[in-house]
Design a protein around this nucleic acid. Structure first.
Length: 153
DNA sequence: GCCAACGTTGGC
DNA sequence: GCCAACGTTGGC
């Protein structure tokens, strides 16, 4: 089982929204590296740090899990979607996404600043300058540390 | 296949 | 709103 950090702007899609829905496709990813993680590496049961970006404060709001293997991202076929991809066809889709399910909200939101203050997390990709990948692998130790900081050990 | 220009991300 | 960093695009 692998561990991941997945970024979302809460104004667009928040952990609250995922809790309401129960599960959701992680659609709209338009970066090849992030797509390849979803297509090749993510398996059902993989655990996810749900990270809120472009908000005040940014940080990890809680946990989710992969509950469905990658499938074609339907938004690439939707002309009205901002994620529409004219080069994609049903036969040859370009973008794929996994399905994720809500797991739990942290008792305490773990802000980016707090992550920065932890020696044990200094190698976390999300803390690296210029690192803007929206889906990032996280080690089991980093995952456990963040969960502990969130008050749900 | 290089690389300049451009667009996007995301913290600040 | 700024801007550094980085990914993508497209001319050559």
């Amino acid at each position: 089982m692998k561990h991941w950090l997945m970024k979302s702007e809460p104004d667009v899609f928040s952990l609250d929204r995922l809790e309401t829905l129960g599960t959701s496709l992680w659609d709209g990813v338009r970066n090849y590296q992030a797509r390849n993680f979803m297509m090749k590496d993510m398996k059902v049961g993989d655990r996810i740090l749900f990270y809120h970006s472009s908000c005040e404060p940014p940080g990890v709001a809680g946990l989710a899990r992969v509950c469905g293997l990658a499938e074609p991202d339907p938004s690439q076929f939707d002309k009205k979607s901002e994620y529409y991809e004219p080069k994609a066809t049903r036969e040859k889709p370009i973008w794929h996404c996994v399905r994720v399910e809500f797991e739990k909200r942290f008792r305490r939101f773990v802000a980016l600043d707090e992550l920065r203050d932890e020696e044990a997390l200094k190698e976390m990709l999300v803390l690296k300058k210029g690192q803007r990948l929206s889906i990032q692998p996280v080690t089991a130790a980093e995952f456990a540390k963040v969960v502990k900081m969130g008050g749900r050990a």
